[in-house]
Design a protein around this nucleic acid. Structure first.
Length: 274
DNA sequence: GCGACAG
DNA sequence: ATCTTGTCGC
């Protein structure tokens, strides 16, 4: 698929000031409320077959006509791996728990990693990978932040707006914002809101995402850190974390992202020998 | 000036 | 992100 907003595609040659200005424009167009082509409540927690009762599809939203999605919805996981200054962006598309497509792109990096400007480093590889994707996802899961970002325009938000695709950001570390409660040693399934501080471009105290304990050891003295889930585009913070919880999979990372992660490493290995 | 910072 | 052995637990 191709960008719906070519003018928002992250350009690495921009100055830092221009990059930040673009992020503010992206944030202005981002939607942090549910506008999905499917009913999030119908996403099975077991990644198994969807309900066929026929009455599950909500018809309550009477404003914008809910675009018809695939049944069940197609969910894409996107992740990158690197070899020096070469980036590999991998996309794995799932439907009903089954992989229906895998694709990737290899590009050269031109800017270093700078906290807050990640989309300008990895964005081009991602856009090129999407250009080779045949199916049309109903939801995209990115590795990194969405609204949990200084200008509310993290990687997931930026890419979501560029493709006008419902998107979720799934990060392993917190970029900014503050957990309402301590995230230490939590049980599996636990969650707490991430509230904005004055470092974020929105009223302080706004829920910009959730810390979510996707997995935890049953016993012992070792602990797993939570994931930081935030809205990318067209999803609320609550729905974003509900969806990640519903994807399950038994690992720390939700299945779409986990498969994209391993596929990116797989491609990396195959690129190493040539 | 100090602290903080996704991948 | 990436580089990597050993180690803990089921």
């Amino acid at each position: 698929m191709e960008p719906v907003r070519p003018d928002f595609v992250p350009d690495p040659s921009l100055s830092r000031t221009e990059m930040e200005a673009l992020q503010r424009s992206v944030a202005a167009d981002a939607e942090f409320a549910d506008r999905l082509p499917f009913d999030p409540a119908t996403v099975s927690q077991t990644t198994g077959p969807a309900d066929t009762t026929g009455s599950a599809q909500s018809t309550l939203t009477g404003e914008r006509p809910m675009t018809t999605a695939h049944e069940p919805p197609v969910v894409a996981g996107i992740d990158q791996s690197f070899i020096n200054d070469t980036a590999i962006s991998a996309i794995v598309a799932l439907q009903d728990g089954e992989v229906i497509e895998r694709t990737h792109a290899v590009t050269e990096l031109s800017v270093p990693y700078i906290p807050g400007l990640l989309s300008f480093r990895e964005g081009e590889a991602i856009v090129e990978a999407f250009a080779t994707l045949d199916c049309e996802p109903d939801l995209a899961c990115f590795d990194g932040s969405g609204r949990i970002h200084f200008r509310q325009a993290g990687l997931a938000t930026h890419m979501g707006v560029v493709f006008d695709l419902p998107a979720i950001g799934i990060a392993k570390n917190l970029l900014c914002g503050e957990p309402r409660e301590s995230v230490d040693d939590r049980a599996e399934g636990w969650r707490t809101p991430i509230e904005s501080t004055d470092a974020v471009d929105c009223p302080s105290g706004t829920t910009i995402g959730y810390a979510y304990q996707s997995r935890q050891y049953d016993s012992g003295n070792r602990y797993i850190n939570p994931l930081y889930v935030s809205p990318g585009h067209r999803v609320s913070a609550e729905t974003a974390v509900d969806l990640v919880a519903a994807f399950g999979g038994g690992y720390k990372l939700p299945e779409p992202t986990r498969l994209a992660d391993s596929y990116a490493d797989e491609v990396k290995s195959s690129v190493v020998d040539d």
